[in-house]
């Protein structure tokens, strides 16, 4: 009786060991199959873009492509900056100060990802109820600081990592 039990236990051990090694093996094969879908080295290599901003007039903006996505670069007028800063934080669905969305001392330059945080459309400039941007896809309104004010988008338009190389050039990424 005890002999038989011992046999069964030994076989159980072999089964468990086989399943475990099998699972590890399957996992080791599956991970490369999943990870191959992540952005490849060529995509990652496009991670920075330098832009000449010297020709942008106050109140105007340009759109450049970074990582396949549009970046809005807007040189805001003093009135627009004042308007953005006059907004009470309580009125914002995603409260954020305008000061925190620009570089200190370069308050006129708004550099942000021109992608609606709802479902990724490109909002239209100088449209909407808040003098900023309006997304035509599902009706999100952004203000002159690119903050969401009304509509289904959950957050403000994203500010990418960027820096001023010199007074006329910014490097995004």
């Amino acid at each position: 009786m005890s002999k038989e039990e011992k046999k069964v236990n030994r076989r159980d051990f072999l089964f468990t060991a086989s399943y475990t090694i099998g699972a590890v093996g399957v996992g080791a094969v599956i991970w490369p199959m999943i990870d191959q879908m992540n952005p490849d080295k060529a995509q990652q290599a496009l991670a920075t873009t330098e832009v000449d901003i010297s020709s942008i007039e106050p109140g105007k903006s340009i759109t450049v492509l970074w990582r396949g996505k549009p970046i809005f670069i807007k040189k805001r007028t003093p009135e627009e900056i004042a308007e953005a800063r006059a907004v009470k934080l309580d009125d914002l669905p995603d409260p954020q100060k305008d000061e925190d969305r620009v570089k200190e001392g370069k308050d006129e330059w708004l550099v942000m990802l021109g992608v609606c945080t709802h479902l990724g459309c490109v909002p239209l400039k100088d449209k909407g109820e808040f003098n900023g941007w309006f997304c035509p896809c599902h009706g999100s309104h952004y203000d002159v600081s690119g903050r969401i004010r009304k509509g289904p988008a959950p957050t403000n338009m994203e500010i990418p990592k960027f820096e001023f190389v010199d007074s006329n050039t910014i490097k995004i990424g």
């Binding site: 999943i34 879908m37 992540n38 952005p39 490849d40 995509q43 990582r67 396949g68 996505k69 990724g120």
Partner: peptide, 23 residues
């Protein structure tokens, strides 16, 4: 991307890029 926490990673993974692109 509406999925909490991992949404953006999943979207990037689906794209194979940082937006809808050739991959």
């Amino acid at each position: 991307s509406a999925i909490p926490l991992v949404g953006d990673s999943i979207t990037t993974w689906l794209w194979g890029a940082y937006s809808v692109d050739n991959p």
